[in-house]
Design a protein around this nucleic acid. Structure first.
Length: 678
DNA sequence: TTTTGAAGTCTCTCC
DNA sequence: GACTTCAAAA
């Protein structure tokens, strides 16, 4: 196939990026400058040049991004791209390790630990070494896991992480290190891999296993990476390992949109790219095709304060358009009313709901809005935030399945055992010790003698396990949904006993059963859920309603890479956005600024930034701080916005003086009443 | 001794 | 509203 001529469809920068020949290429692309377009056309160009699709690897941040890009490339070259390999780093690592892991001592049937599983296992290591009760000041399992994960992903020594982030635990370094060692050995004994292991094993495979590593690297002639500003040093190592022979690496990113440092990502990967890949070509994209000039003016001003690695000045030819609105609301309720009213107006005027989004800093901030949307029967989809899979009852069911899949998975055993009435952690540990002695044979479980109170429950569980593990011996093949249904025959009663209102939780389990129906076998189902958790209720419904129009509710993080005609940024309140938890250092605060920049640049035409005053009510924790407009919306940003009140009759729009002047009087007595329950 | 219920505490972002 | 901690019940 001859290389298609893209010169009419791309601007000069995009064309240079798309048609770049071999060798390393860095595309520095500002928000909305068509970086996806450049990447898609580059894939098409490579195929047109004769590179077999299955020898191209496209690494993206979410699976959704990969699918969209591949679909677009496919349209360009007419169906040939179906076999381009694409996905997240983690999902790709998973695929490669299933195939090549056994060659480096990773059992083929490993189980993936999600974050909370990993934390639980860390907790077991902690308890095993006797640090649980020793002195109550030893770090919690979540903290331990955070430090461990940070160490793996950033390669910063543990003692330095402690010194920088948790100086109160500096003296515990030896015990912390021992806990990590215990955690690591438990993982390998139990055949478990956490998220970090997926990346680490991929990197080590390339670096330490000369023959196999070479075979893996030789799978692809070209590797393309999207959102490179949000990768970490481990991922950069992987990239180098995959390109040792051919150096055909294309990375795309925007240092102004780096928002994942909490996960070890570092913008240094982008800044150091030319040094790590000598001879790299750099292409900069600056023309914004997404937003109108007034929207761009506000976001450019917001980000202008930040120190920049690769300077970019975004411009657009889309003149005209309305100035972004800065909306003062009296309280959360008024904010909700404002957003719902405007959404309905825009919808009346012809904007589909799907072309509008409400963005916020953290998942729980949309609770009030969700209630109102439900009451007014406005369909919505929520991205990010509370995950279906993190719900205790869903994890319970998955723990049952994981025992069947990997009987050595003690995290799941422990979870299931402590569900049974009459069994707490002491008894559960005793049972696990017995199981370990019997080489984790599931049949050994029925031999264990539980305390009298737990007899009936033990019998029911042993029965279910025996029945379900029998399928491997030739019985009728059970589907994953059928397995879940069988587990629920005993589990639903436990659920009903535990909660006053079990109905919504039972409904979740119904949904889980439906999702499971789409998977050929249990292992695929479990891996998929760990790597690509359903991110929206929509995903759960099982496709097919993609035409359904629904307003998007999303965290700012999950909104990355997306765009909408209208964007409502809510809770633009200091302490909420930026989050008070993320302001411990200047770097953290700068990342919050970039996050707000990401949120604002999602808007094509309409941008509404809403800040409720009196946000303190009903929320504890953040001292007595009087709520103020986000510090990022400073005078320079404000003068490029139009200030309005959410409800005109309610309060006057605050004077445009500095922050404290904009705050209302605080009803301290009402606050204290609420706080102390008077 | 172990479990369980009740009072008390603090709530981020994601593969 | 969910998770931890502490004291009473089995």
């Amino acid at each position: 196939m001859p290389a298609p001529d893209f010169s009419k469809e791309l601007n000069a920068g995009q064309l240079a990026a798309a048609t770049h020949g071999d060798g390393p290429l860095l595309i520095v692309a500002g928000a909305g400058t068509g970086k996806t377009r450049a990447l898609v056309y580059r894939v098409a160009h490579l195929i047109g040049r004769g590179v077999p699709p299955n020898r191209i690897l496209l690494l993206t941040f979410t699976r959704r991004a990969a699918q969209e890009m591949l679909a677009r490339a496919e349209r360009l070259v007419g169906g040939a791209t179906g076999r381009v390999h694409g996905g997240t780093f983690h999902a790709t690592a998973h695929r490669l390790l299933r195939a090549y892991g056994p060659g480096v001592g990773i059992a083929k049937d490993f189980t993936i630990l999600d974050q909370s599983d990993a934390e639980d296992l860390m907790g077991m290591a902690r308890a095993h070494l006797g640090f649980a009760q020793r002195h109550s000041r030893f770090p919690k399992k979540e903290t331990l896991h955070h430090v461990y994960s940070r160490h793996v992903n950033t390669e910063i020594p543990v003692d330095q992480i402690l010194r920088d982030d948790l100086p109160q635990f500096e003296g515990d370094l030896p015990d912390i290190t021992r806990t990590f060692a215990e955690y690591v050995s438990r993982k390998s004994e139990r055949n478990l891999l956490d998220y970090d292991d997926l990346l680490l094993c991929w990197a080590l495979l390339l670096e330490r296993a000369p023959e196999l590593g070479e075979r893996v690297a030789a799978l692809y002639d070209h590797v393309l990476v999207d959102e490179y500003q949000d990768t970490n040093v481990l991922q950069a190592r992987i990239l180098r390992g995959m390109a040792t022979t051919h150096k055909n690496v294309t990375v795309v990113g925007d240092d102004a949109q780096s928002i994942y440092s909490f996960r070890g990502a570092t913008v240094r990967n982008m800044l150091d790219f030319p040094a790590q890949f000598p001879g790299a070509t750099i292409v900069t994209l600056e023309q914004n095709y997404r937003s109108t000039q007034p929207v761009l003016d506000v976001s450019n001003t917001l980000i202008a304060r930040a120190p920049r690695g690769y300077g970019k000045q975004l411009f657009t030819t889309r003149q005209g358009g309305e100035r972004p609105l800065l909306v003062a609301a009296r309280d959360e309720h008024e904010q909700t009313q404002y957003v719902t009213d405007r959404v309905l107006e825009l919808h009346e005027a012809g904007t589909p709901l799907r072309e509008m989004a409400v963005l916020f800093r953290a998942g729980y901030m949309s609770a009030d809005l969700e209630i109102e949307l439900t009451n007014r029967q406005i369909p919505f989809e929520k991205w990010g935030g509370i995950k279906f899979l993190e719900a205790a009852h869903v994890k319970d069911i998955l723990a049952f399945l994981r025992i069947l899949e990997n009987p050595r998975d003690e995290v799941s055993w422990f979870r299931v055992l402590t569900l049974l009435p009459g069994i707490g952690d002491i008894t559960a540990r005793a049972a696990l010790a017995l199981m370990a002695d019997r080489a984790w044979d599931p049949a050994a479980f029925s031999l264990w003698t539980p305390p009298p109170r737990a007899r009936a429950a033990h019998e029911a569980l042993a029965g279910a396990i025996a029945e379900l593990s029998r399928r491997d011996e030739g019985g009728a093949q059970r589907s994953v949904s059928e397995e879940i249904a069988r587990v629920r025959r005993m589990y639903d009663d436990i659920l009903r006993d535990r909660y006053d209102r079990p109905e919504p939780r039972l409904a979740d389990l119904d949904q889980l059963e439906i999702i499971a129906g789409g998977f050929p076998h249990r292992a695929a189902f479990l891996s998929e859920l760990a790597l690509e958790p359903p991110s929206a209720t929509h995903d759960l419904a099982g496709g097919s309603d993609s035409e359904n129009d629904a307003l998007i509710l999303s965290t700012a993080h999950s909104a990355k890479g997306r765009e909408w005609d209208a964007v409502f940024l809510i809770w633009a309140v200091d302490g909420w956005f930026p989050s008070s938890r993320a302001m411990r250092s200047d770097e953290d605060t700068e990342e919050e600024r970039r996050l707000m920049y990401v949120a604002m640049t999602r808007a094509r035409k309409h941008l509404h930034v809403v800040y409720p005053l009196n946000a303190y009510q009903s929320r504890f924790g953040t001292e007595y701080s009087i709520d103020q407009l986000s510090r990022f919306i400073d005078a320079g940003v404000r003068e490029r916005m139009t200030r309005v009140a959410a409800a005109p009759e309610a309060i006057p729009v605050p004077e445009d003086r500095e922050r404290s002047a904009a705050a209302p009087e605080m009803d301290l007595r009402a606050f204290l009443r609420e706080r102390f329950g008077g």
